[in-house]
């Protein structure tokens, strides 16, 4: 269970959001560019700091403006960046092994995501859809308590995107952890979201 109640002053508006995500939910953050979606993810993961408020994950306080600001490394959050941010100088296996908890679980994930045959390849030699699956495997291999996905499907072609949607829903059923998905696409939001939070200039409508 994730509880977020944060405020942050941005250049053009005040970000002010308050929501919860339970472990059987995929919450979609939906809204136009520059409405504060990525900023919310960055606050949750610890890349930026909110001005006030608090963030709690499974009874752990990640952030409390008054006293707590847990370092990124200790938050146990998997983050899928928009362009996947794979380590270009490391093989697919080394990417996934970088933060893995156990080797057997990492290998199981690779099988599950059909990327086990790519273990020795480098990120520049695999397709967009494969990169995305490697990034998901890499994030899940750390056995996070929460998964954040920042427009993970925007760079994929239609067919691959369809398949990735199915895969995400299947994975979510398998490893029940709260998921927050940021997207521009209304169809995607409708299809994947247990709930949709419409974001406009920093507030949920």
């Amino acid at each position: 269970m994730l509880t977020v109640d944060i405020q942050k002053t941005l250049t053009h508006f005040e970000l002010n959001v308050d929501f919860t995500v339970s472990k059987d939910e995929i919450i979609v953050l939906f809204g136009p560019s520059g409405s504060g979606k990525t900023t919310i993810l960055n606050c949750i993961v610890g890349l930026t700091k909110a001005t006030s408020g608090f963030i709690q994950l499974n009874n752990r306080t990640l952030f409390d403006a008054k006293k707590v600001n847990l370092p990124i490394q200790q938050r146990k959050i998997g983050y899928l960046f928009q362009d996947y941010a794979l380590f270009p100088h490391l093989s697919v296996w080394k990417n996934i092994a970088y933060g893995m908890k156990t080797e057997s679980f990492a290998k199981q994930l690779m099988k599950e995501l059909r990327i086990d045959h790519l273990a020795d390849q480098f990120p520049n030699a695999i397709s967009g859809g494969e990169k995305q699956r490697v990034a998901i495997a890499r994030a899940l291999a750390t056995e996070p308590d929460l998964l954040l996905l920042d427009e993970p499907f925007s760079a994929l072609d239609d067919a691959t995107r369809e398949r990735s949607h199915e895969e995400l829903m299947r994975l979510h059923k398998l490893w029940e952890i709260p998921v927050i998905l940021v997207t521009h696409s209304h169809a995607e939001a409708e299809k994947l979201g247990s709930r949709i939070l419409y974001l406009d200039e920093g507030t949920i409508r």
């Binding site: 890349l47 990124i72 490394q73 200790q74 998997g78 960046f81 941010a85 970088y98 933060g99």
Partner: peptide, 16 residues
Amino acid sequence: NYDPNIENAAYTMGAS
């Protein structure tokens, strides 16, 4: 010359 999110991804994986 490279995307700073590559480093950020490593931080989220628990690396010092």
